[in-house]
Design a binder for these strands. Structure first.
Lengths: 192, 192
DNA sequence: CTCGATTGTCTAGCGATGCTAGGATCGAGG
DNA sequence: CCTCGATCCTAGCATCGCTAGACAATCGAG
């Protein structure tokens, strides 16, 4: 019994190590640098070990995404709870979202750009993903405006944030006007 | 003289063939399927021929992106010119944008998701890219509102459209509410 | 008209990728 | 102490982007 439990514990630890190492490597050198060989070397195991934990690279990306989703949800809720008033809350939420995307580009990519084999907007969507959306909904639902479905409004606001995050990081729009764009977004889109 | 001209013409034709074939293949089976080998086979030349036209795969993606940018600019202007009134013009523009993204996913990816080695938002940005942004600016600048820089407003509106396009296609948000989200975006963001 | 030089293209191969088969090793249970 | 199953590693496959070097066709000079 105890032996088997210890093995399971060690196995779970190793799995966490894989995910953490993949994330670290991705943040340091980009997802392209996260090859199964490099990852295996860093965790000091051979390549096939990775495949005893995950189906393939996609699932590893997915695991990083789930971890990131939980963090993002927490960050969003923390930011929202520290602000007073609906307007300030929305502004704080939006700011926290973009900051998370900027500070954790690899995690953000795993979540929304790369294929982590995750199901979205469905029943079998993993809990952390649903919860991250819920964190947005909690604050944004309040400012959807009359006759506007809160979830639909949240999707729209989220899309705008996502567009700002990705286009900025890809160099499609310059970071200079970031503050102004954000103010304008909150001012116009939210029904205050 | 004439011989050299003929050769140059043939060479230019072949280059167009490469770009068109890459685009076709990408639209049919996704960019992952666009390998240099498959592309070479389709144009009935060997692999190294591709490298006599382009530095590498990135540049081929970039060429598809430029072609797409020109088409997109034309589509946006056509849609805007057919609508009467500022509100209808903005709505038509937004609709045309999302439709282009939906009907040409591979081209859209080449433009805004993949690395085509193109410079954006800079002086040496290729003309078609500047022009596509200009097409957005022409219509959106009219509804930026007082005291709001037209280009900055355009960037924000564009970000929202980009977010909607990418999140929808990635399955992050469902296509059902598309119309409503678009209406809401135009209604709220534009200063009408 | 011939023959070297240039231009164009192809075959073959390099290093790296994700992933897997099959053998070696190790430790728990009898 | 021995057996046998779980665990892990070595080695290898197919494919990727990209390139070197051989070969053939074409051109220009004598």
């Amino acid at each position: 019994m105890s032996v088997q439990e210890r093995k399971e514990r060690e196995r779970a630890n190793r799995e966490r190590l894989i995910v953490a190492t993949a994330r670290e490597l991705a943040e340091q050198q980009g997802w392209d640098a996260v090859t199964t060989r490099r990852l295996a070397e860093r965790i000091e195991y051979s390549q096939p070990v990775l495949y005893s934990h995950f189906r393939g690279k996609r699932e590893i990306i997915g695991a990083v995404a789930l971890e990131g989703a939980a963090e993002m949800a927490a960050a969003l809720r923390a930011a929202a709870s520290e602000a007073d008033g609906r307007r300030a809350r929305v502004a704080a939420l939006a700011h926290a979202y973009l900051e998370f995307a900027e500070r954790n580009p690899a995690v953000y990519d795993a979540l929304f750009q790369l294929d982590g084999g995750l199901a979205f907007a469905r029943e079998d969507t993993p809990e952390p993903l649903k919860d991250a959306f819920a964190a947005l909904l909690e604050t944004l639902g309040e400012v959807a405006g009359e006759g506007v479905h809160p979830a639909l409004f949240t999707e729209l606001f989220w899309s705008a944030l996502h567009g700002l995050a990705t286009l900025t990081r890809a160099g499609r729009i310059l970071p200079e006007g970031a503050g102004e764009r954000l103010d304008l977004l909150v001012e116009r889109l939210a029904a205050l």
